[in-house]
Amino acid sequence: MKKVIAIVGPTAVGKSALGLKLAQEFHSEIISGDSMQIYRHLDIGTAKDSPAELKAVPHHLVDICDPDQRYTVKNFQERAKKIITDLNEQGKIPFVVGGTGFYLSSLINNLNLGGNSTGDDKVRQELLEIEKNDGVGRLQSILKSEDPIAYRKIDIENSRRLIRAIEVIRTTGKSITDQNNGNKWANFYLIGLTDDRPKLYERINQRVDKMVEMGLLDEAEYVFKHRETFVQAKNAIGYKELFPYFEQNTPLDSCLDEVKKNSRHFAKRQFTYFRNQMDVDWYNISDDNNYQKTIEKNIIKFVGGHND
């Protein structure tokens, strides 16, 4: 059975830094589990590792698409599984690092996400038309009727999640949240990082300020100017909140406050998702000064050998 280590948790908690350290320690490679780091040219708002960090440890599924390209959960699942298989065959246990819960769930639970048949495309187009004409509320009603389990578990404010969930139930007959609708194909050790909420929120606020110093406004303006074609990227936290500033409707400080607020809310949703949907071994980074050493020991146990 293949083996994989995943590092999950809320935004700004330190997943990337830990992933880099552990991947170096165990002579392995990193697979990004982030739905926005796939896009080229969007580096600051997506919190990518620096060029030096990307060079220090081989990274996969980073900078693989242009921002105007569509990238699905199924695309991620298929590519990540192949990379994991290849790395395992080389004797490496890969580290999947990221905070996009549904991406990781699709991989861990081997979810049946349907195919790319004409029928699937037809369903998707019908749902996109419903969203355009009737709004998200209509999609929510459809999902509640056709797949009440998914309605209770996924983020129903996210139209892409709604469309995908309806698409899967209609094309496969199975709920997208059914953890038994795929065959177990790998053993995962899930490392979860968390922190006391006030400390985590302060880390988030500080990271937004640092992003601004690094050039977030220029990057967000680039997305704003291409918002008609950057269909997925334009909805990322850190970009969309700044659009009113570029439209000269809202002061910059107010927009940045909105980035921080939405980032804090996102962190809360991430933690809730991982806590409720996955079997995670949690580590509070403030409570345990030696949590990294404990994690290393547990990884060695999971691998079933010794770290060379």
Rank of each mutant, 00 (worst) to 15 (best):
N88V: 06
K293M: 09
T172I: 03
Y189W: 09
L87K: 07
P198V: 07
S35I: 02
N109Q: 10
H27F: 11
M278E: 12
S106A: 15
R269G: 00
N205R: 13
V212K: 05
V96A: 07
D120F: 11
K210Q: 13
A236N: 13
N181V: 02
M211Q: 15
D287P: 00
D195N: 11
E258V: 00
I5E: 12
A23E: 07
N290W: 10
L54I: 07
K199Y: 07
G14H: 01
G9C: 06
N133M: 14
D257V: 01
F274M: 08
K153S: 08
N284R: 08
F266I: 01
L162I: 05
I176W: 06
I237R: 14
D134S: 14
Y245Q: 06
N298Q: 15
Q206L: 13
N289I: 09
L111M: 11
G9V: 10
P251H: 04
L256R: 01
L143N: 05
L42C: 10
I142V: 11
D66K: 10
S105Q: 12
I93G: 03
R207F: 10
T294Y: 12
P244N: 02
K21P: 00
L216S: 04
D218V: 00
K293W: 01
E258I: 00
Q24K: 15
A220P: 01
E202A: 14
M211Y: 10
H27W: 13
I237W: 05
N235H: 15
R164Q: 13
R138Y: 11
R269C: 00
D121K: 14
K81E: 14
S263G: 02
M36L: 08
A233I: 05
I93S: 02
G99E: 05
Y239W: 01
T46N: 04
I285N: 03
K260G: 09
N187K: 15
N289L: 06
P244V: 05
I38Q: 02
N181Y: 04
P51M: 07
P94E: 06
K132G: 10
F102H: 09
W282F: 12
D147F: 04
I5N: 12
A236H: 07
L127M: 12
E241I: 02
F246S: 02
G91P: 04
G304E: 06
T250N: 04
R79L: 12
S254A: 14
I31E: 08
E221C: 05
D288C: 11
Y39T: 02
G137K: 03
G91F: 05
D279M: 03
K210R: 14
P94A: 03
D196P: 00
L42K: 03
P198N: 12
Y273S: 01
T272K: 13
V259D: 03
D218K: 12
L216R: 07
I31W: 02
Q206A: 11
D121V: 06
D86I: 04
G115L: 01
P58K: 09
G91R: 07
G182M: 09
G182F: 09
T194I: 11
S16P: 09
K210M: 03
D257Q: 09
E167Y: 10
